[in-house]
Design a protein around this nucleic acid. Structure first.
Lengths: 341, 341
DNA sequence: ACTGGTAAGTAACACGTGTTAACAGAATCT
DNA sequence: AGATTCTGTTAACACGTGTTACTTACCAGT
């Protein structure tokens, strides 16, 4: 072990024969002071020779910045388990952070102990917080926002002014259902992706409702079932839907994972896809293309969502301000064989 | 905004009418000093009243500990996208960390710029590093280990002494193939989950080979194809396998996601599962139960893997030492209809 | 009454960094 | 020549915390 102890800026200073202040100026490229080229080079050489890395704790203490953002996942563990969407989002966040020299602290919290993340900001662990799947009744969140803490949501909280990035899921769902209507379907069922206290579930259901209304089709609430992120819930919901008479000819399932279970239920009932029941999903998980038959679904820019959220949060932290408070990303219908033969 | 500035331990001290030292003693429950109950209570009241949270930067600076572990993901982005396994692992890590009062810093790195994580430890950002999917040629890793940095691998690096937690994938794969042999199959193909420079791919293939040898079946290397995490690779590999004559009657696919593509290829060829081709997967992703037909596969304790790795790394950081350097978790064969009708 | 010991509390230092204000010396201007 | 600016560098402070060494005050033992 050559250097058991990590070297400090003082070590660099003595090695280079200058003061610690000069070291700091050189290494941080402070523009307001001028350093002669010869000393600058001596400092850089010494730093490289000692393998100097500034201690983040000291830097954080004096600057008040931690160059870290907290990624808070409000989803329930059961949802995290089945959400094929999440890794892509996280990767996007990470890449955006990396580009600005930020780190990402991961913090999954139990949805019913909301506010479990306030410690992160109070202890100065992070400079800002990115919330995935915010809950409506999360008062701690509103408090933080009023205190001026940099916040960014993935998903919306309509009654607040907290900046957010979201996918235009309503439009996506509407396009999905319109697609079914254009194919001639009139009795179209729906399975939600989650209970309706999640805004994402509300948005997708609203798209379904709007598409029907625009087409002048009367909404029949007995054709709507609730899913809960799992394929098992999709299986149960679909089995129940198939008992309604007269039978539906198409179904919109607001999650590919849930749709997987629904498809199995349809097959178990001895029905063909899409001839007897057409089905459209939502999310476009990587597996959707390999369902049997391949699933028509709505593609969400998962990576882009995470990237935009991370980038905007950091801009907020840097005090640069956002041109617009919110950002809606477009989704896109991907037509495959589960809706058209 | 009531208290724009965060309160410090000095604020608590003056409010309680004691010295800052006393505040520190009370709040940290230092056992070696004695504090009268009345002062102790006054400090606690003041802290609560001021909503005091100790600044982690100051604490980290003096103690040298950051109470944070780095979770480094070496997988390629393409793998992260399709890996349904990852969220469960991360959740396990997080829960283990939480229980010990640790935080988790997420750090996906590009596999070919290995060592991109050394900064985390040099800058004192984290106390230890947890590596998911270590690469064989990662010299930076070995350097860190020799420096005495607390490390824990998820997966193994056989030629080193770095402590690790892994799933006994070889045994799992062997059980999967033995299951097929027990059903009477003799010509059994295999599709790997990844290229063979990943140790996880090697382990699973070795299990396949061992099962065949134990049963006295001659290994035919023309029945082995490489996958690369994606269902598309499974589709292609399976299509190619089906052209071999005489046709195989069963296949072991070392990843459920890859198996999904393989199943589609089998169906497209007009063959039935399991009557014409029996198939066994690996991983037991949540969707596997809802494949058509439901997939026989090897269940991996993903959550447990993350939990054990996190718990053991933290124990290492605390200097408690491990009873054994490594830990192998058992996998378990789950029989469903893709192998037996 | 003196010694020794314990309980209760504090002053002072250390951790490693960023930054302000000041200081010599050289160059430029009036 | 004296006054002023600019260049290069540094001493000193601040950030918020944990911890060691030190002071009191009090009580028991001879």
């Amino acid at each position: 072990m050559p250097n058991k102890k990590r070297s400090t800026s003082q070590d660099v200073a003595t090695t280079a024969g200058v003061s610690r202040t000069t070291v700091s100026f050189v290494l941080n490229n402070v523009p307001s002071v001028s350093i002669s080229d010869v000393t600058r080079q001596r400092v850089l050489d010494a730093a490289r020779k000692l393998d100097y890395h500034p201690n983040v704790a000291g830097r954080k203490l004096v600057s008040g910045k931690s160059y870290t953002i907290g990624l808070v996942l409000c989803q329930s563990p059961e949802q995290v388990f089945t959400d094929a969407f999440l890794p892509q989002v996280m990767l996007g966040v990470e890449q955006a952070a990396l580009q600005q020299g930020f780190h990402v602290l991961l913090k999954p919290i139990d949805p019913n102990d909301a506010g479990g993340y306030t410690g992160l900001i109070r202890e100065n662990h992070v400079d800002g917080i990115l919330i995935s799947g915010p809950r409506q009744d999360d008062t701690a969140l509103i408090n933080l926002h009023e205190e001026g803490v940099p916040l960014m949501l993935m998903g919306q909280l309509p009654q607040t002014q907290i900046p957010f990035v979201d996918v235009n899921a309503t439009a996506g769902a509407e396009a999905a259902v319109r697609h079914l209507i254009d194919l001639g379907h009139q009795r179209i069922g729906m399975v939600t992706n989650a209970p309706l206290n999640y805004t994402s579930a509300q948005q997708r259901r609203n798209g379904y409702l709007q598409a029907l209304e625009s087409a002048g089709i009367l909404v029949d609430h007995s054709l709507i079932r609730d899913g809960n992120y799992t394929p098992a819930s999709g299986f149960a919901a679909m089995a129940s839907l198939l008992e309604v008479s007269p039978r539906i000819t198409a179904v919109f399932v607001a999650s590919d994972v849930v749709a997987m279970g629904a498809m199995l239920a349809i097959k178990r009932a001895g029905l063909r896809i899409p001839e007897d029941i057409a089905i459209v999903g939502f999310d476009d998980i990587p597996l959707a293309e390999f369902f049997d038959p391949p699933l028509t679904t709505v593609h969400l820019p998962a990576y882009g969502l995470g990237w935009a959220a991370g980038e905007r949060l950091i801009r907020l932290i840097q005090g640069e301000g956002l041109h617009e408070n919110s950002l809606l990303l477009e989704s896109k219908l991907i037509t495959r064989q589960s809706s058209v033969a």
